[in-house]
Nucleic acid binder design. Sequence first.
DNA 1: AGTCAACATTTTATCGATAAAAATATATTT
DNA 2: AAATATATTTTTATCGATAAAATGTTGACT
Lengths: 225, 225
Amino acid sequence: MTLVETVYEAIREGIVLGRYAPESRLKVEPMKAEFGVSGTIVREALNRLIFEGLVIANGRRGFSVAPFSAEDLADIIRARLLIEVEVVRLSVAHGTEDWEVALVGAHHGLTRREATVDIADEASIRALEAANRAFHDQLGAACPSPTLFQFYSQLFTRHYRYRRVALREKVILREAREDHQDLLDAALVRNVERVADITRAHIERTQRFSDQLITAFDRAVPATD
Amino acid sequence: MTLVETVYEAIREGIVLGRYAPESRLKVEPMKAEFGVSGTIVREALNRLIFEGLVIANGRRGFSVAPFSAEDLADIIRARLLIEVEVVRLSVAHGTEDWEVALVGAHHGLTRREATVDIADEASIRALEAANRAFHDQLGAACPSPTLFQFYSQLFTRHYRYRRVALREKVILREAREDHQDLLDAALVRNVERVADITRAHIERTQRFSDQLITAFDRAVPATD
DNA sequence: AGTCAACATTTTATCGATAAAAATATATTT
DNA sequence: AAATATATTTTTATCGATAAAATGTTGACT
């Protein structure tokens, strides 16, 4: 793996997990030290993140983390409703037996994490989210459109940046658990429209918490300037 | 405008217009000379193009132009059918009066080019395509979802890479002309579903030429290695 | 006190050089 | 002549240094 790729992953994780706050500047000089690489590497990694919607390039004024806003969140949800629903639809329609097997496996892993998650434990939450992501990725993995899958993936990541703030709510976890079971059942019997419906509801459900998310975030991180 | 941005635009245009053939390697050393900049600049520009789907990064083996394939083209068309249709739908539903004015203007510009285009003249074709792009961009410009608009834009660019091969067909030009007039008329009376339908047909029409496009390309540019 | 301008500092954008890797050519052995 | 090993060249990935902006600060002047 190339150095740029390593740094690129690290920065992306830093942004997604909120270690770099929204709108904060991503200064090359400090990051050189942080990762022990030269400025060129950092800059190349940042350039890759621009089109992923996580980093903003401000002309001659360097880079910064993409901002949080209610509009942006609404935008992400709307786009997910269009794209992710189509991705799972196509995937369930095209999935092979191997895909089914992998899906059952991913669901099992997710179930385990859901059962044992401790809301107070950061690592446990992190593991749950990884399993959640793996399950949803697998659900869409048989989608024959690489482009749509890439869009889905990007949106999922951007959405997670917001969602993680609310991940400690027990009620969300419970509802999500039910959705996941329903998704698996419908997917296994290839009920495409039902999978689409549950996916839609699953995404829409997060909308209920949108306002809370934004205000919760504003409380946690006061304006950066 | 920063140097990286300039070079980035130049490389993108080079790829879109086929000056850099699909799958050909994008070597930093020659490009340094071509643009009169250092390797760092070229690399940063290339990194930006990765997520746009125009450039592939091959681990430690440099960069290359995204390949042409029948699957890729089908993928682009499928994604456009989903995303662009939604973009124009949202845009027509949300467009203000200023948007209407700009749309009429863009359509007028396009009509002029369509009337005077000379299939044998490269510059004339180029101008037509710019006007075509401007009209379609304006049609979707009032879409309240920046994300969906960005996806639309990326797909349009990627599709153009294929379409330009077929742009010299008179029959395509004639059919497109009719679509554009119908799109404008339906947009002005805010007939959202009609605009969506025409857009769908407009994109689907290109599908008829897909096979020809691929074989035409294969003839024009024999395998690169 | 508040505005404005000269100055100092930080930060960025960019370059040229280098070491490591990959690709290519050459030689050597069978 | 084929296959393998070795040397050579090209190309890439990476670094440290520098000039040009941008930002922040101080201090004179109203």
